[in-house]
Each structure stands twice: as C-alpha cells, then as structure tokens.
C-alpha cells in the first residue's frame, strides 16, 4: 500500500488522525496544547464530564499490553462522554490467526468512530489509517497510542504540555533526554515536538548501544557523559529502561547503567537550579532514577499523568470534530 503523503492531515491541513508529531505544523501542536488547558480543570470538578463526544464509540485497541496509557485514554474518552470499548487483542483474535486489518474491518462493521491503537510494530497506526482511507472509511479516526519504537504522539504532547506549564517559552530551553533512545517512541515523539516548537537545544544522553545511528539527524546534540550532558539544562526527561536490554548485550547490568545514567541528586545538580525532572512512567527506581529525585520537589512526574488526560481529551475531541 503506497502512502504518498502525511496521512494524518486532510487536504485542508486539518487533523483527522494523530499518528506522529513529525510533520505536524507548530500551530497544530500549539492548538492542541491550548485546547487541553481548559480540560485540565474538568478533573477537579464534581461532575467530570463534557458532552463533546456523546454517542461516539471509541475502541481502545491494545495489541501490546499497557495499563497506564490505556487507562488514561479510557478516562479521557469517558470525560468526553464517549462510549469506550477496551480490547486487549494480544490475548484474542490475532492469536487465532486474524490479521490486524481483518480486526479493524470487523470493528468498523460494529460502527467504531475512533481507534486508539497500541502495537509493537512501528508504523501499525499508519497502516490502519491508510487502510481506512483505502476502504472508504475516512470518517473513522486513528490515534496512535504507541507504535513500536516509532512514535507515541500523545505522550509527546503531554510532555510538551508539562514543559510549557512549568517553563513557558520553548525557544529559550535546553532539554536533555536520557537513556534508551534507541527503543523509545517517547523520545522520538518528544524530539519532533520540541524541534517543531523551536527548542534550540535538545540533547540525548546515553551509551552508544542505546542511541540510534545518526540520531543527530533529528536535530539533537549527542552526549555520552551524563554530567556533561545535563550541564545547564532546564528540563531532564528520563526514559524507562526495559529489563530485557541486558539480554541483547546492550548493557552489562542495571547496576552499571545506574552508575553512568541513573539520575541522582548529585547529577541533577549539574542542571539549572530550577530544572524539572520528567519520566513517562512506569519508573524503575534505582535503575534510571533514584527515589529521592523521583519524589523530590523538582519532579513533575505525577503532574505529567494528570496533564496526560487533558491532552488526550483535547486530541480526541479535536479529531472527532474534524
């Protein structure tokens, strides 16, 4: 299937799917963040609902297990008054031999309005979106909730929202992303978002085994020494280190990783005094981040989770209204 153009925008440049932050105009990203702002207060109300997606059927399609992301999408859709159907496909049809696109066709036949998709393969959300287009179902929307190593655009947006909340102007910031960039869809999405919004200094920090080839091409500076890489930065984003990375000869041990790339108070002291600490969760305490830092006053890890619901509400309502 040939996908000639960025398939998440309609001919008028309006967002119809959210597949990646790459190639999204800065105005679109800012407009999502602006839309999210009023939603952030809905969670504090007694009645936590708005009727923007009443009667719409949102299918959470998780081909790869996830608790946190699926839950926040579910909460976001419910606060928009949508009907939410959760499917953990990992345990159902594909194990019976049904293909990804057969599954999609069946759910479209059940009158799905939106798919929130998590899949272990990079490009899975693009494939679904182009299939819907090819089969004459362009009114069914796709939100990428993580595809392989490629993208996790709503995470990227909630990270941007968080940074904007605490730091305001992207054009004056140094942001350091630390850890397993190679396998991280979170890092890729955040890098695209930051560079699109004009962040002049985005750094990635990690050992050569965990940084992808020519990552500089994404517009980042590469550091292998964490202390050097954190010097003077405004935002520190720690990435999760999966325990299976020790098996593929990428790292010798979690202990040695922590020694070089774990965020401790000592290393954080190299950043600006008001630098914030972020993490997409779930955290491995003592592997990529030290508990006192994770729970410290500069950590904004829990606000990220709260903002995540508002950002997902913004994305879903904007796309559904398209």
């Amino acid at each position: 299937m040939t996908i000639a153009r960025n398939p998440q925008l309609d001919p008028d440049g309006k967002l119809v799917h959210l597949l990646t932050l790459e190639g999204l105009p800065a105005e679109t990203i800012v407009s999502i963040l602006d839309t999210a702002a009023p939603f952030a207060s809905i969670g504090e109300r007694e009645v936590k609902k708005v009727p923007l997606m009443r009667g719409k059927a949102v299918f959470n399609l998780f081909f790869e297990s996830s608790t946190r992301t699926r839950t926040t999408f579910e909460i976001a859709a419910k606060r928009l008054s949508a009907d939410v159907i959760n499917l953990n496909i990992g345990a159902s049809s594909t194990s019976k031999g049904e293909t990804l696109l057969d599954t999609i066709d069946n759910l479209v036949a059940m009158n799905a309005d939106m798919f929130v998709v998590r899949h272990a393969q990079s490009g899975a959300a693009h494939l679904i979106a182009s299939h819907l287009h090819a089969t004459g179902k362009p009114h069914v929307h796709v939100v990428n909730a993580g595809d392989g190593r490629h993208g996790h655009p709503t995470q990227g947006l909630l990270d941007l929202y968080t940074i904007r909340h605490y730091k305001r102007d992207f054009r004056a910031l140094s942001v350091a992303i630390v850890g397993d960039v190679l396998h991280s869809r979170v890092a890729r999405s955040l890098i695209h978002g930051l560079t699109t919004l004009g962040t002049p200094d985005v750094r990635v920090i990690g050992p050569k085994t965990l940084l992808p080839t020519r990552v500089e091409g994404l517009g980042v500076h590469v550091h292998h020494d964490m202390r050097e890489g954190l010097a003077g930065c405004d935002v520190v984003v720690m990435l999760r280190l999966q325990s299976e990375r020790m098996k593929g000869a990428l790292l010798p041990s979690s202990g040695e990783y922590f020694k070089h790339y774990g965020l401790t108070a000592d290393k954080l002291a190299r950043a600006k005094p008001d630098a914030i600490v972020m993490h997409p969760g779930p955290m491995n305490r003592g592997v990529e981040i030290d508990s006192p830092v994770a729970d410290g006053e500069r950590s904004v890890i829990l606000p990220q989770v709260t903002f995540g619901i508002a950002v997902r509400m913004a994305v879903m309502s904007m796309i559904a209204g398209a």
């Binding site: 790459e22 490009g123 595809d147 993208g151 890729r188 080839t213 020519r214 091409g217 994404l218």
Partner: peptide
C-alpha cells in the same frame, strides 16, 4: 538500513 530513515521511523536496523 541503519541510517537516518530507520532512526526516524523507529525501525530495527541492518547495518
């Protein structure tokens, strides 16, 4: 191919 495109798309690479 292990290059900028695989890095961007998050595709496992063959060097």
């Amino acid at each position: 191919h292990d290059g900028e495109i695989a890095t961007r798309l998050g595709l496992p690479a063959v060097p």
